[in-house]
């Protein structure tokens, strides 16, 4: 059966699921970053989502937006570096799209991706084509916007696919920001580590919701 919305408690479970899978992705992300950056992306993301898992375990949350905001501030504080600022800003921004939401449904999901994208662009000043996580996030936000009438399993599948293809496309781009920018053409052939993380977060989101759907 299709899942149409997540309750506050289910959104918390979603982040528990994302956190454990991001922590498991540590070595893969580190290797991706060694090819193109300074090799600390996996360490930082794992540290961040370990902190998120602890926060979820200990915290009481008043709303869906509150969970997103807490995840954002926790990532901001625990990752550090460019990744902390960007992924922290993404979730803090995303919470702005969820004001007054008692549950996370497809229109809210579309708004939250769009609001997160806007915050990331303000903070990082990156646009599509700069070989950053925006290359995965912007097509995902657009896919969500175009499919907000669909069920939550469908919309998360489509956003995950859009992010994945955006991430794959970063292999064909030359880095213009971050520590990879001086690689120039040597950055070709390697996907951007931030785009990988963004597409993973959206993939794990879909996998978790698919799992709920299968249980129903």
């Amino acid at each position: 059966m299709a899942v149409n919305s997540l309750s506050l408690e289910q959104v918390k479970d979603l982040f528990v699921f994302i956190s454990s899978h991001m922590i498991e992705s540590k070595d893969m992300l580190t290797h991706a970053d060694q090819a193109i950056g300074d090799g600390d992306h996996g360490i930082g993301m794992a540290r961040g989502f370990e902190a998120v898992a602890e926060k979820l375990d200990s915290g009481d949350f008043s709303s869906v937006a509150d969970i997103f905001r807490s995840v954002g501030f926790t990532l901001l504080a625990s990752i550090g570096g460019a990744s902390g600022a960007i992924f922290g800003s993404f979730f803090i921004g995303a919470s702005n799209g969820l004001k007054d939401c008692s549950k996370l449904d497809s229109p809210a999901f579309a708004r939250c991706l769009q609001a997160g994208l806007e915050m990331v662009k303000i903070r990082g000043k990156a646009k599509v084509g700069d070989k950053t996580m925006v290359d995965a996030l912007e097509p995902a936000a657009q896919a969500a916007q175009a499919n907000k009438e669909k069920s939550l399993d469908e919309i998360t599948l489509l956003t995950s696919q859009a992010a994945e293809s955006g991430k794959e496309n970063t292999k064909n781009l030359i880095a213009t920001t971050g520590k990879a920018k001086t690689l120039g053409e040597r950055s070709l052939g390697h996907p951007d580590p931030g785009a990988i993380s963004m597409s993973l977060i959206l993939r794990f989101t879909h996998e978790h919701i698919q799992g709920l759907s299968n249980e129903m």
């Binding site: 300074d38 600390d40 360490i43 930082g44 540290r47 901001l76 504080a77 625990s78 990752i79 550090g80 570096g81 460019a82 990744s83 902390g84 600022a85």
Partner: peptide, 12 residues
């Protein structure tokens, strides 16, 4: 001071 090769976070 941040972690090795990573900027400190805003709250720090």
């Amino acid at each position: 001071c941040g972690n090795v090769f990573a900027a400190p976070s805003p709250d720090q």
